[in-house]
Amino acid sequence: MYAQIVEQVVAKVMSGAWQAGAPLPSIRELASDCQVSVITVKRAYLELERSGVIVTRHGKGSFVADALDATRGLATAEFDSLLQGLLDAAAKLGLNRDALLERVGDAFDASTSTDKGTPA
Rank of each mutant, 00 (worst) to 15 (best):
P25S: 13
T56P: 04
A11Y: 10
Q35F: 15
G105Q: 07
L82P: 04
S62A: 15
P25V: 09
L86Q: 03
T56H: 12
S113F: 07
S32I: 10
E102P: 02
F63V: 11
D66I: 01
E29M: 12
L82R: 15
K12N: 13
V36Q: 01
F108Q: 04
V6S: 01
A11W: 08
V53E: 00
A90I: 07
R97D: 11
L48F: 12
L30Y: 02
K60W: 13
G73C: 00
K12S: 14
T56Y: 06
D115I: 11
S62F: 06
V53W: 00
D106G: 09
S26R: 09
A120T: 07
A31Y: 00
L82V: 10
L87Y: 14
A31R: 01
V53P: 00
G61P: 04
G21Y: 10
D80C: 10
G61H: 04
A89C: 03
G59H: 04
E29S: 15
F108L: 06
E102F: 05
R50E: 11
R43D: 14
E49G: 05
V53R: 01
T71A: 09
I39T: 15
S62Q: 06
T114D: 11
T40W: 06
Y45R: 03
L46K: 11
D33W: 12
E78Q: 09
I54A: 00
D115N: 10
Q19S: 11
T76K: 12
V9H: 09
V55H: 06
M1Y: 03
E102C: 03
F108S: 04
A70M: 02
T118P: 02
D115F: 10
A44Y: 02
R103S: 07
F63W: 11
A90D: 07
A22T: 12
V6P: 00
L83I: 03
R72W: 06
A120F: 06
V6Q: 01
K92D: 15
L95W: 05
A99D: 14
S37W: 05
D115E: 13
Q4V: 11
I5Q: 08
A11C: 09
S26M: 06
A90C: 08
V55T: 13
P25T: 10
G16A: 05
L87R: 13
A3L: 14
A22M: 10
D106T: 12
M1D: 00
P25A: 14
S111C: 08
K12G: 08
S26V: 04
T118H: 10
T118M: 12
S37M: 05
Q19P: 09
V64H: 05
A107F: 11
R57A: 07
D88E: 06
A91H: 13
T112Y: 08
F79L: 13
G16M: 04
